[in-house]
């Protein structure tokens, strides 16, 4: 093997800063809001049933605070989804994959390619309707996917999965 000793520029060292993140699809925000509305409706229906059955709970002192809590949570979630969406994004680099998300608490997660065990693509009913999918990346020791890129088109999700699989094969050769 030929010996070489080239300068390594600081740009060549991996860094978690100054990464260009691709934004999520706009329809993902729509999907989140639809899920939120459905969730609130479900809570209202269940609440009605419970209060209808348990008559002694039908007092203003219980109902009004719960309704207020529901409204406040729903509003905060609505706002939070919007802010979080603006911050969220993913980045694919030759050696690693990054994903960031969050509103009040912002998280950036990075997984090196050589730690990826396998990748899968999935899509819930609302996501499918809007042409969206999620890419789940599995590393060792995790029983369930703990690194998921959400809010990408189905075509893009497949491309990401294929790209990662190609990188994995290259890493093992």
């Amino acid at each position: 093997m030929e010996f070489s000793n080239e300068n390594i520029l600081s740009n060549d060292l991996p860094t978690i800063e100054n990464v260009i993140f691709y934004p999520l699809e706009k329809s993902y925000l729509k999907a989140q809001r639809i899920s939120l509305i459905l969730g609130v409706l479900l809570i209202i229906v269940v609440g009605f049933i419970i209060f209808y059955v348990v008559k002694k709970w039908q007092t203003p002192i219980i109902i009004y605070p719960l309704i207020s809590l529901l409204i406040i949570s729903a509003v905060l979630n609505w706002i939070g989804d919007g802010i979080s969406f603006r911050y969220s994004g993913y980045a694919l680099r030759s050696k690693d994959i990054l994903f960031r998300h969050g509103w009040l608490i912002r998280k950036s997660r990075v997984v090196p390619i050589n730690r990826v065990q396998h990748v899968s693509v999935q899509s819930g009913p609302i996501e499918r309707k809007l042409g969206l999918a999620s890419v789940s990346i599995f590393t060792a020791g995790s029983g369930s996917a703990d690194f998921t890129i959400k809010g990408v088109t189905q075509e893009k999700a497949q491309q990401i999965k294929d790209w990662i699989s190609h990188q994995l094969n290259g890493a093992t050769e």
Binding site: L104, I105, R109, R115, T139, S142
Partner: peptide, 24 residues
């Protein structure tokens, strides 16, 4: 296996962060 950098609103305003290192 993975690294996560987390910042709450307070941490952002005070240049702080928390790290989580995930292993198998």
């Amino acid at each position: 296996q993975q690294v996560e950098l987390k910042q709450s609103f307070y941490q952002r305003s005070h240049s702080l962060a928390s790290l989580t290192f995930y292993t198998a």
